[in-house]
């Protein structure tokens, strides 16, 4: 564009720039919209192919790797078997295995927030979100899928806290929650459920589960006799009479 001198020239230039910007923004908006639309088509198509042609895809290694790449790039879950009649009846087929992988994945992804303890209902809701428009996954399906993982040890289990069902994906051996509680208990020698929840902002199930495990391990003792009526968990092992151990 040729520059013209004077205030008028500047104003015209500014107006023209505004116009261009407006058009540019419009185009950009349309572009993102179109993009999202095409991406959506891409996704549904890929999902359908993953479901329909699973065996054919697996027969051709070179194509399979390209298919995986596509799925990964546009965010499609390549595990998409239908439940089907036989899976429902006998539990055979890939459906429950695939569901198992998806369940563990959700547990892994939410672990930073919930410490490896997730409400079964919440798990189902998250699963349904990812499974888009296809058949709903029931809590019973989840339980069946989890039971298929039993072969790999008892590190993944469904526990009941009150009326709620929780899925625990961190085994006691690897659970760092207990260390935090022990550290908290060092101050007074005991903790209460409320105190733990307040200090770490955990959900009630998480605190109760951790304290129960510590009870089972013989590290904690219960005291219900206090005046405020709150159950106290005493930790004799960390109480002040034992010498704190210096770091080696």
């Amino acid at each position: 564009m040729r520059r013209r001198p004077g205030i008028g020239g500047l104003q015209t230039a500014a107006a023209a720039r505004d116009q261009y910007r407006l058009v540019g923004e419009n185009v950009a908006k349309i572009r993102t919209d179109m993009m999202k639309e095409q991406l959506a088509t891409f996704r549904t198509q890929l999902e359908e192919f993953a479901r329909k042609h699973k065996n054919d895809i697996r027969k051709n290694p070179a194509f399979r790797s390209q298919f995986h790449e596509m799925c990964a790039k546009v965010g499609v879950d390549p595990l998409a078997s239908n439940k089907g009649f036989w899976a429902e009846l006998l539990g055979i087929g890939d459906f429950y295995y695939e569901l198992g992988v998806q369940i563990v994945e959700i547990c892994l992804a939410t672990r930073p927030h919930n410490g490896g303890l997730i409400n079964l209902q919440e798990l189902c809701i998250l699963l349904r979100q990812r499974k888009s428009d296809r058949e709903a996954v029931s809590e019973d399906d989840c339980l069946r899928a989890i039971s298929k993982l039993k072969v790999l040890g008892s590190g993944f289990e469904v526990i009941s806290v009150g009326k709620k069902k929780l899925v625990r994906s961190v085994p006691t051996e690897l659970n760092k929650d207990h260390n935090e509680i022990l550290e908290l208990a060092q101050a007074q020698g005991f903790v209460t459920v409320e105190e733990v929840e307040r200090r770490f902002s955990w959900t009630s199930g998480r605190a109760i589960d951790a304290l129960d495990t510590l009870l089972d391990e013989g590290l904690a003792m219960i005291d219900d006799g206090h005046r405020d009526g709150k159950r106290r968990y005493w930790f004799p092992c960390v109480s002040s009479n034992s010498t704190p151990v210096a770091d080696t």
Partner: peptide
């Protein structure tokens, strides 16, 4: 657990 930096169960 506290000195080794691992869970008490472990």
């Amino acid at each position: 657990a506290m000195t080794l930096g691992i869970a008490p169960g472990m």
